[in-house]
Amino acid sequence: MSTSVIKHIKPLGFPWETQDPFLFCAYHRDEYPKGNASMGVDFEQLKGRNTGSDFTRRDGWRMYHGANIPGFPYHPHRGFETITINKEGVVDHSDSLGGAGRFMAGDVQWMTAGRGIQHSEMFPLINTEKRNPLEIFQIWLNLPKASKMVEPHYKMLWNEDIPVIKHTDQSGRLTSIQVIAGKINNVSALEPTPDSWASDSKNAIGVYTVSMEANANWILPKTSDQANRSIFFYKGDHIKIETQTILHNNIIELKAHENITIQNGSQDAYFLILEGKPIEEPVVQHGPFVMNTQEEIIQAMKDYGETHFGGWPWPDTEVVHPRNKGRFALHSNGIEEIK
């Protein structure tokens, strides 16, 4: 019987494969060009692209479902949550409840779709004199049956408020950990949305982004023995866990109730870590709806057809905010945060 802390190693794909209670993670890295007057892409640069469904990383970037501005025009969700982590670039949010916002590098948006919401996530190219690189993660976190029809809610976790652990090893090498959800040692994350699966600490949800200097060493502390744990090693050269050397572009599934010693290789390394207690309920997904049964999916489609989850209060499908707006969050109750 093996005593290794490593359970599985598998290559990253698109989207990234996750473990219960997570549904998947989409990692986007795009080297967008200079923006035009509309914060979009010039017509000449769109030639030959399947605009509206462009997932080919030609010239280092994709339009996704955007026709003029990259991103995801309005679309519905029901039955789960999205956690959008911004590492570089600009994301503009708008939703069917009248909420809106702009968030940038280091910021995180947490949205519980619950019974239903429409939203758009666009990537405005605000720089006209230089390129507009974008790097984000969007994580889909499932909800249990008891919470699938809660009221939708979104909140911002702003960069300057999110706890960051700076660990220096015995050789003076630095590891930085952004604690988005959960707890590492004595450092706890900000509160998620009220009805999130992460709102109960017994569910042991952890979401962390980690950077390690070359040759750094760091110990990821153990968590609940009921949790699943995955490290997504998306940038770097190699790391070593126990005696196993692991190259970048791999997912490492680990025992959650063990301390994990990570030895980095000769280049800076970057990870996303997801861990949490599984929900262990049936999952039936149809596009943007995630429920427990096929009948519930059919009902979600019917409800959306009849109500459009509140409609769309914005004049455009590709909603972007004024170029000079800066970071903000407008909530459905009319309260606006300005950063």
Rank of each mutant, 00 (worst) to 15 (best):
S4H: 11
S4K: 13
K10L: 14
K10N: 15
E17W: 10
E17I: 14
Q19T: 15
D20Y: 04
P21D: 07
H28Y: 12
R29A: 04
V41M: 13
D42E: 15
E44D: 14
T51G: 05
G52S: 00
D59V: 11
W61L: 04
N68H: 13
P73S: 09
Y74E: 10
H77Y: 08
T82V: 09
N86F: 03
V90T: 13
H93A: 02
S94L: 05
L97Q: 08
R102L: 09
F103W: 08
F103M: 05
Q109G: 00
W110F: 14
M111H: 06
A113D: 07
R115E: 11
G116I: 03
Q118F: 04
E121T: 11
E121N: 06
P124D: 11
N127E: 14
E135I: 06
E135L: 13
L141T: 07
A146T: 15
S147N: 14
M149K: 15
E160P: 11
V164A: 10
T168L: 09
A189F: 04
A189W: 04
G206H: 12
S211Y: 04
A214S: 03
A214Y: 02
W218K: 03
L220Y: 10
L220A: 11
Q226Y: 12
Q226V: 11
K235F: 06
D237Q: 06
I239N: 00
E242T: 08
E258M: 15
T261P: 06
N264F: 02
D268R: 08
D268P: 05
G276A: 12
K277H: 13
I279D: 06
E281N: 10
Q294F: 15
E296I: 01
I297A: 08
T307K: 07
W312C: 06
P315H: 00
N324L: 13
K325I: 13
A329W: 00
L330G: 01
I335F: 04
I338E: 07
I338C: 07
